Computed example of a mutant assay.
Amino acid sequence: MTDKIARLEEVLEAMLVDDEKITARAVIRRMSGVLKYPTDITRNEKRKALVADYAGRQDKIRSAVERSSKSSRVELERQISLKNSEIERLRGEKELLIASHRAMILSTAEMGGFGTWKRFFDKYQAAIDALDGMGALPRAEVVRHPLSEQP
């Protein structure tokens, strides 16, 4: 059963790539005898749902292509330019927020409240890891004071 489902998915993916209309009859033609009749698809809920899912994907792809082909090249370039400028603006805002966040943590730590700040995030290690990955947590190097090294 799972071999037939796997083969069906392969055929549906190929039909999607080839932009061949996805119907139960068309799928049977491409199945090379694995399934013989369209009812082998329409009477089995899993197969029927899989074919419907791929047909829906195909409709979405075709409508996206249709919309984009109606737009002129100049219009598409304008839209890309707008999206690129929005991306740059968002990157700048992200960098500003990271710098601001780092400064707030440093000022909290200077006042002796870093432990309190960290307590809010103890249950959210993933958030701390994400902040660290973005560079939003300040880095500090511990250096021994020269007077403490003397006997």
Results as ranks from 00 to 15, higher is better:
70 K>A: 14
12 L>Q: 01
97 L>Y: 13
77 E>I: 02
98 I>R: 02
50 L>A: 03
69 S>R: 14
125 Q>D: 14
43 R>F: 07
3 D>F: 13
1 M>P: 03
129 D>V: 01
147 L>S: 10
55 A>Q: 10
144 R>F: 08
21 K>T: 09
10 E>N: 13
115 G>H: 10
80 I>A: 04
106 L>T: 09
29 R>T: 13
52 A>R: 14
8 L>Q: 04
71 S>N: 02
61 I>D: 08
8 L>Y: 04
30 R>T: 04
30 R>E: 07
86 E>C: 01
34 V>I: 15
32 S>Q: 15
101 H>C: 08
145 H>P: 01
24 A>S: 15
79 Q>G: 03
13 E>C: 09
70 K>E: 13
104 M>N: 04
99 A>L: 12
3 D>Y: 09
149 E>G: 00
115 G>L: 10
61 I>R: 11
84 N>G: 01
47 R>Q: 02
38 P>Y: 07
90 L>G: 00
42 T>C: 06
27 V>R: 00
114 F>C: 01
46 K>I: 14
128 I>G: 00
150 Q>S: 06
16 L>S: 07
96 L>R: 15
84 N>A: 08
84 N>F: 04
125 Q>V: 02
11 V>K: 00
22 I>F: 00
92 G>H: 12
139 R>V: 11
74 V>G: 04
42 T>E: 14
143 V>K: 12
91 R>D: 07
149 E>V: 07
45 E>A: 12
26 A>S: 14
98 I>V: 15
54 Y>P: 02
133 G>A: 06
54 Y>H: 08
48 K>S: 15
38 P>M: 07
14 A>C: 02
46 K>S: 08
5 I>N: 10
113 G>M: 09
110 E>R: 15
57 R>Q: 06
34 V>T: 14
108 T>V: 14
150 Q>G: 04
20 E>C: 05
85 S>D: 13
136 A>G: 12
108 T>G: 11
76 L>R: 12
51 V>S: 03
130 A>Q: 10
92 G>S: 12
42 T>A: 12
108 T>L: 14
150 Q>W: 05
32 S>M: 11
121 F>T: 06
127 A>V: 14
57 R>T: 02
8 L>M: 11
101 H>I: 08
11 V>E: 01
62 R>L: 12
43 R>D: 07
51 V>W: 01
